[in-house]
């Protein structure tokens, strides 16, 4: 598998008359199978970096290669297809569809899959993803019948269902208590051990300590980039 390569990525936002450089010449390689944390103060550009990597947003300049494809040159609908097939998102607020069962939530990305995928196989894939996150017995529950940690695991299953090149998690533990935080981190570590690439945005250093690599953002630049020396293992409760 090819790495994710970002070279000289710049992104400027206009706020009235002032220009804010959210990303200022970011260069970053993410190896397949890595588990990386992006930390930094708010406004440091870490969310923008996430959006660019996740193809939700396009850089103003620079180059971004995702599995060899130059993302910066792609059309809007091509970006949508990349998000659909190569990227999994996990959000702070879970972002599950309300009044929709866990299974249907997990099947949502498959709905927008452009190839032939019979309904039976969609169901099978979604069931498998839910098994991976340990929620096979909660398949037919709706989000309001699930705890926060369970909802986040459904969201992770949704990110997994398309067998993505990378899972992007934006503050995935921000809404969780410390116990379920460890639960979710344990799940991420488990998935990472299976070879899934994960990028996790957080502002909590002890969450970052569970990853393999940390980059610290400041003013749209990468300030520090280091391997985690003593990776903490989150044990499931």
């Amino acid at each position: 598998m090819q790495p994710i390569q970002l070279k000289n990525i710049c992104k400027t936002f206009r706020l009235g008359d002032t220009k804010v450089k959210a990303l200022d010449g970011v260069c970053l390689d993410i190896e397949p199978g890595d588990f990386m944390a992006v930390i930094g103060a708010s406004g440091s550009g870490k969310s923008t970096l996430m959006n660019v990597i996740g193809c939700l947003d396009q850089a103003d300049s620079g180059s971004y290669l995702l599995e060899g494809r130059p993302v910066c040159e792609l059309q809007k609908h091509q970006l949508a297809d990349i998000r659909n097939q190569r990227i999994g998102f996990v959000f702070q607020g879970f972002n599950l569809l309300p009044r929709t069962t866990a299974l249907e939530n997990v099947m949502l990305p498959l709905l927008y899959y452009r190839g032939e995928l019979p309904a039976a196989e969609q169901r099978q894939r979604a069931t498998k993803a839910l098994q991976q996150v340990g929620l096979a017995d909660r398949m037919h529950h709706e989000p309001n019948q699930l705890s926060g940690g369970q909802q986040q695991r459904v969201a992770i299953a949704r990110a997994l269902v398309n067998d993505p090149a990378i899972i992007l998690a934006d503050e995935p533990t921000g809404n969780l208590d410390s116990r379920t935080t460890l639960d979710v981190l344990a799940l991420f570590q488990e998935l990472n051990d299976q070879g899934i690439t994960i990028v996790l945005v957080t502002h909590e250093t002890d969450v970052a300590e569970h990853t393999r690599r940390v980059i610290e953002m400041q003013d749209g630049k990468i300030q520090r980039d280091f391997k985690v020396a003593n990776r903490r293992l989150a044990l499931k409760y």
Binding site: G54, A80, R83, N95, Y112
Partner: peptide
């Protein structure tokens, strides 16, 4: 927000 979720998981504008 629902539309945002759908777009994030790969829905095109046309969808």
């Amino acid at each position: 927000r629902e539309i945002g979720i759908r777009l994030a998981v790969g829905a095109r504008g046309g969808d």
